[in-house]
C-alpha cells in the first residue's frame, strides 16, 4: 500500500482539503499513518497561514487603492 506521507505531502494534503479536492490514492496514503492530533495541528498551522494570506491580500488591496 502507499508509504507513510512525509511532512510536505501532509501539508499539501491539508491545503488540498482547504481547496476541497483530494484523490482517493492520497487519502489512503494519508490515513495509513500519523496520529489524528498531528493532522489537527497541521490544520491549525495552515489556518494561521490562510489568515496571514488574507491579511496580506487586504493590505495589498488597500495599498493598491491608496487608501
Amino acid at each position: 500500500m502507499s508509504d507513510k506521507p512525509n511532512l510536505l505531502q501532509m501539508f499539501l494534503s491539508v491545503l488540498a482539503a482547504c481547496f476541497g479536492v483530494q484523490s482517493s490514492h492520497n487519502r489512503e496514503r494519508d490515513f495509513a499513518a500519523g496520529h489524528t492530533w498531528a493532522w489537527m495541528l497541521l490544520g491549525l498551522v495552515v489556518m494561521g497561514l490562510f489568515v496571514v494570506f488574507v491579511i496580506a491580500l487586504v493590505s495589498w488591496a488597500l495599498s493598491l487603492a491608496g487608501a
Binding site: 482547504c18 476541497g20 479536492v21 484523490s23 482517493s24 487519502r27 490544520g43 488597500l62
Partner: peptide, 30 residues
C-alpha cells in the same frame, strides 16, 4: 475523498469568518 477532506477543512475554516454577520456594525475598512 474530496467530501471527507472538504468537510474536515470546514471544521477549521468556519472559525475565521464570523464577522460577516456584522458588516454594518462599524468595522474599519481592513
Amino acid at each position: 475523498a474530496s467530501m471527507v477532506y472538504a468537510t474536515a477543512s470546514i471544521a477549521f475554516l468556519a472559525f475565521i469568518v464570523w464577522a460577516h454577520h456584522m458588516f454594518t456594525v462599524g468595522m474599519p475598512l481592513a
